[in-house]
Simulated assay, not measured.
Amino acid sequence: MNIKPLRKAVFPVGGLGTRFLPATKAMPKEMLPVVDRPLIQYAVDEAIEAGIEQMIFVTGRGKSAIEDHFDVAYELEATMASRGKSLEILEPTRLKPGAIAYVRQQEPMGLGHAVWCARDIVGNEPFAVLLADDFMVGQPGCLKQMVDAYNRVGGNLICAQEVPDSQTDKYGVITPGARDGTLTEVRGLVEKPKPGSAPSNLAVIGRYILQPEVMRVLETQEAGAGGEIQLTDAMAKMIGGQPFHGVTFQGTRYDCGDKAGYAQANLALALTRDDIGPAVRAFARELLG
């Protein structure tokens, strides 16, 4: 089996973030911090750990803060240096020249459309897709776990997680086939099935490794659930023509597109920090009595 190396990752960051208004009126939701790093930084760090060489951001209006975050901040760095402060904390925000590309999604037409906007930069290579508001905490990271599986089986892979039956209508859901450890054969996919009609409780979470042929499917993909061009619908058409597997993530996922999930992520990560963990833990105990 000829498995092409995975070098590129697409970050769809053009959404409006309406669930976090008014905080996201002037700030992209991907820049919301978990303790002291924005969500998009965690996703980029995860991609780098997995060996990704080029980050492709699919942006929209009002997303310039993301571009600024991964740029050189001359005034800030000069001021810090003049005061004898280390610039080490800013190193993860400075990627190699040419390691980032930006493309605009002019209209919010769905995740599938956002991915398709990156087609010319992706070219004829496999690529990853990372949704920053699915905040994945594990060792190794989620995408690294998926890349390790990809290097064994090739084809298309999606991150999978069991969810309560009452929540399957919020996700893309897998029709499962044979299982081998954390790998599950994907025999079908359905986006946001009606309650009681889901083929399993194995949901698709915001990490994907896809072959470039999906771009040709997306080119003619009609709108699906919610009146948007759904990536799940396009992936479903790839099943049977190429290997397709789900990888159950070994770690913890926080849904930072949800206010409660975002608050939980901040608390959970704060508690693991040596610098602030003891103080946060003491406060939590006092608050909860």
Rank of each mutant, 00 (worst) to 15 (best):
A65K: 14
H69S: 07
A101K: 15
I100A: 04
Y74D: 08
A65T: 05
G60W: 04
S86I: 12
V103I: 05
L76C: 08
E67I: 09
A81G: 00
A101N: 14
I89Y: 13
I56R: 08
R37H: 14
V103H: 02
A65S: 13
Q41P: 00
P33Y: 10
E88P: 06
T59R: 09
F57R: 02
T59Q: 09
Q54L: 14
E67S: 13
V58A: 09
G51P: 00
L76M: 10
G51R: 04
G62S: 08
I48P: 00
I40P: 00
F57S: 05
I52E: 04
P97L: 13
V34S: 05
R94W: 08
S82E: 13
G98V: 04
S86A: 14
H69V: 01
S86T: 15
F57A: 04
Q41S: 06
E88V: 12
K29D: 03
A99W: 03
A47T: 08
R83Y: 10
T93C: 05
R61F: 03
H69D: 08
D36F: 02
V58F: 07
P38I: 07
I89D: 11
V34A: 03
E75Y: 06
T93Q: 10
L39Y: 01
E75V: 05
L32K: 07
E49I: 06
Y42N: 09
K29N: 05
A73T: 03
F70C: 07
G98S: 06
Q54F: 01
M27Y: 00
Q54G: 00
A26S: 12
K29A: 12
I66P: 03
P33A: 13
Q41C: 11
A50R: 02
P33R: 15
I66A: 04
V34G: 06
F70V: 12
G84H: 01
V58G: 07
K29H: 03
R83S: 09
F57L: 04
I89Q: 14
M55D: 02
M55I: 10
I52T: 05
M55Y: 01
R61H: 05
R61E: 11
Q54K: 14
